[in-house]
Simulated assay, not measured.
Amino acid sequence: MARDGVAVDPVFAALVARRRAGERFDVRAECARLGVSTKTFYKYLRRFEIEGVDGFYPRSRRPLTSPSLVAAAVEDVIVAARKDLAGSGLDEGAESILFWITDHPDQWPPGQVVPSRATVNRVLDRRGMVVAVPQRAPKRCGRRFEADHPNTRWQMDGFEVTLSTGIKVMVLHILDDCSRFDLACHVASSENAHDVWAAFTTAAAAYGLPAQLQTDNGTAFSGKRRGWTSALEANCLTLGIRHIPSSVGHPQTCGKVERAHKTTRKWLRSQPLAGTPEELQTQLDTYRVIYNEQRRKTHLGGLTPDQRFRLGPRDGPGPDTLTAPFLVTECITSTSGCIGIDGTLVGIGRPHAGQPATVFRQGDRVTVFIGNEIAAEIVLDRRRRYQRQSGLELPMS
């Protein structure tokens, strides 16, 4: 075949060359034998006369003009935004670049439309600014969760930082699950019970108490899985805060604060290395202002963490702090006559084992139906894993 974009075969090329050399033959008949049109034959003949053998090679099909091509001035601004964010130690992905462009209208070329996230990524790829990373697991592999209100759930964890003197210190990090507001970055000598409580009380004094506190299973945070109660767990119980330890060997449970560690570390790498814990604390206080008040987030609708946190409504300890949504769920009663609700087991009796149950919930108030009959009414005691039969408030007959 002789087509644009596909090299011609040797027989056709020889036929064109013979004609150019002056040989006379029936062009129509030869073209019919090779399965090409006479128009194609004469097109390649003209190319061969002008370009020689190069005329037989495929030509680019790129259009002469590209009206939708991103202007060079737009690409320059995108690259400048990328460099500015990277130099500041902040995330420099496409979404952050788009927020930077929105916040710097004086840098944007007049009359140009702000590009999409995909266009920004293509520009960065053309400019060689995209770093290849290993393929990640699809998002569907994990179970995502997010609190509906600020102070509904805090996540707390720690990470190490090495000072210029070589001494390692611990940064105790607290993040609000709903707004991603950075509540505290507390420098401590280690991850110990005293400093963990100090970091928590500092955050609580400034922003109020949460309804839930989620941590990993470090000994300073939780002793539940080891058969004892940590000081943090005991204090949370006294304040009416539900403490939630993560699954063992599953840091994704506290994934939001784990991801926040990465952002914090990246910013610290762009700063002079601190020599003392006090200098590091000053740097982290500056970072929290930048993170909370300047970095806008897509999942927050373009708001900063500070704006979303202040937007409220804020939750707090106790079941009646917020008007809880009304939920209806269905489940199967276990062989021991129990159903699971928010990490607790509610006993409704062995006679109902294996039967489908319909659960009506509003906050901690629960009504359980088996068929059309009420099996139980209860107010969950979240301090207990198992809601004992004696704690059930059965309706009067």
Score class of each variant (00 low, 15 high):
V11N: 02
R136G: 09
L273R: 01
R19P: 07
P210L: 07
D157M: 00
D103M: 07
V130D: 14
G354A: 01
F145G: 14
V187C: 09
A73E: 10
W154G: 05
S88H: 15
R20N: 12
F12D: 08
P109S: 02
A376I: 08
T304E: 05
L268H: 05
P67D: 02
Q107H: 15
S190D: 12
D76E: 14
V187H: 06
G318M: 09
T335W: 14
V74M: 05
V53A: 12
V36I: 14
G316S: 11
T162V: 03
F369H: 10
D177C: 10
S246L: 03
S336V: 04
V130A: 09
A206D: 09
P10K: 00
R59K: 02
S68D: 03
I332G: 03
A32D: 11
L300K: 08
R46Q: 10
L85R: 07
K224W: 12
T276C: 07
N372D: 15
L273Q: 05
L172H: 03
A375E: 08
G275D: 07
Q281R: 12
E377P: 04
R365T: 11
R59W: 08
R46N: 07
E279M: 11
H352I: 04
G55N: 01
S247V: 04
L322H: 08
I348Y: 01
P313Y: 12
V74T: 08
R126Y: 12
R365S: 12
N192C: 07
V130F: 13
L380H: 07
V123K: 02
A274S: 04
M170Q: 06
F360E: 11
D157Y: 00
C338I: 07
S66G: 02
R226G: 11
H149F: 15
C331P: 03
V53Q: 06
E160V: 02
K139Y: 14
L45S: 11
M396L: 15
Q294V: 06
P313I: 09
A324Y: 10
T38W: 07
T238H: 15
V8A: 01
K297P: 04
V359T: 08
S222K: 05
S96M: 05
V77Q: 15
R140A: 08
P313A: 05
M129V: 10
I101V: 15
Y386P: 06
P58F: 00
T165L: 01
L239S: 12
S116E: 11
V289G: 11
S397E: 14
W154M: 04
V130R: 13
A7V: 13
E51Q: 09
D157G: 00
I78N: 13
R33D: 14
I167K: 05
G128L: 10
F326H: 14
Q362C: 10
T282S: 11
G363C: 03
V36T: 13
E279T: 08
G55C: 02
L345H: 13
A198L: 10
R383I: 04
V113G: 11
T165D: 02
V379W: 13
I50D: 05
A184I: 09
G340H: 01
A73K: 03
V6M: 08
L268S: 02
N292G: 09
A147E: 09
L183D: 02
A205T: 04
T102W: 15
